[in-house]
Computed example of a mutant assay.
Amino acid sequence: MPRARLRQRKVDAAAETVLRLRRPRPAVWDTIVEAAASSGPEVYWSAQQVLIQAGRAAAPYADQLADRLDSLLRDPHDYLIGQLAFALAGIGDVRAMPGLHRLAVQGRLWRDGGHAAPALAALPAAELLPLLRRDLVAEQAAGGNAFALSVLAALGPEAAPALPEVVACLEGPYAHGAARVLGRIGPAAAPAAGRLAEFATGAGRPPGPYGPDARGVWRGVRTAAWAHSRVTGDDSLALRSYAADLASGRGSRVLPYLADFGPAAAPHTAAVRALMDSPGAWTRVAAAHAWWRITGDPEPAVPVLLAAVDPEWDGHVAYPTPLAVRHLGEIGAPAAAARPVLTRLLERETRLDYAWERHRILADDTFTRTLTEALAGIGSHIPG
């Protein structure tokens, strides 16, 4: 068999292994990085689909990846640039930035790494903001806006310098994402409070398919109300809006926001407690979390959350297992009954197998991190 074919098989096998196993031998990652850092196009595909998801696994190879990226930047058409740039971004290495700027100029930033957007938040905000702000200005109605806004939301208050561009997005098809970013920025976004209040009360709404001539309530009205409370420090508008939802049978939609308000949402504890008996698992989990955040009482919440943790969860997005795990960790020691099932899920050798390959490592790493943090919150030995 030709040497190139044998090499291709080796790289393909390594990629399959890291997609399947949580803790592959280091030599497997060695093979993937070697293929990406020094091989020809015939081995790119199988290596690139896992390299962009590598996260902390790429840290030992940062110099190799950065050197290869630097050499590829001399070729304006090399499609491996995006994979290397996102791999470096995932470990917070600023040497990713020239590659990311190249992708942005070519309009490829969100196309190459849309599913890996959270990786960018590991980079310093000062490096990212000029790139993201330029994208928001250049592509007001393009899919790149959703990508940029998702990264800005992850940056939280550090995204404040992008306020002019985010506020401008309130007047377009990505108003919902923009409102979310403004809420994450907090008080620095106070200049947008008036427009958020209009959206929250129905006095105004953004243009587009949910604009002034659309039927029904704009889909971002609850997010706008939450954002208004976060930028002004006044939660009265939001709580009035959410009270109306609870009274009209739409309480499940506002439970995450009520949880965020904590004790300030105390007038709604009876409605929240009733939703803990909902037939829907997602609603039960959200209600249990809101109950605990509002009252500080874990007793009725822990059994509901624990019941939602499937010990055989395979990554299917229809089930709220990761959210329940996160909430149990927030509750801490009173959720000690969850230790065995969380430990079992963390010790599993194989990755979540339901997730699409382009998301599998990212999804599994996020879940294992959630499990680890939950066990630390509860207080127990965490498997290595």
Score class of each variant (00 low, 15 high):
R240V: 13
R240S: 12
S241K: 10
S241L: 12
Y242P: 11
A243D: 13
A243G: 15
A243I: 03
A244G: 08
D245G: 05
L246H: 07
L246Y: 09
L246M: 14
A247D: 12
A247N: 13
A247L: 11
S248D: 11
S248H: 08
S248M: 06
G249M: 02
G251W: 05
G251K: 03
S252P: 03
S252R: 15
R253I: 03
P256M: 00
Y257F: 15
L258T: 00
A259N: 04
A259G: 05
D260S: 03
F261L: 15
G262R: 08
G262K: 03
G262D: 13
P263A: 07
A264M: 12
A264G: 07
A264H: 10
A265R: 09
A266H: 08
P267V: 02
T269E: 15
A270Y: 04
A270T: 13
A270C: 13
A270L: 10
A271F: 09
A271M: 12
V272C: 00
V272F: 07
R273C: 10
R273Y: 08
R273W: 12
A274F: 09
A274D: 14
L275E: 07
L275N: 03
L275V: 11
M276G: 15
S278Q: 06
P279N: 01
G280N: 13
G280A: 14
G280T: 15
W282E: 12
W282D: 08
W282I: 03
T283W: 00
T283Q: 07
T283R: 00
R284T: 01
R284F: 01
V285D: 01
V285H: 10
V285F: 12
A286I: 02
A286T: 02
A286L: 04
A287Q: 01
A288T: 08
A288F: 13
A288Q: 04
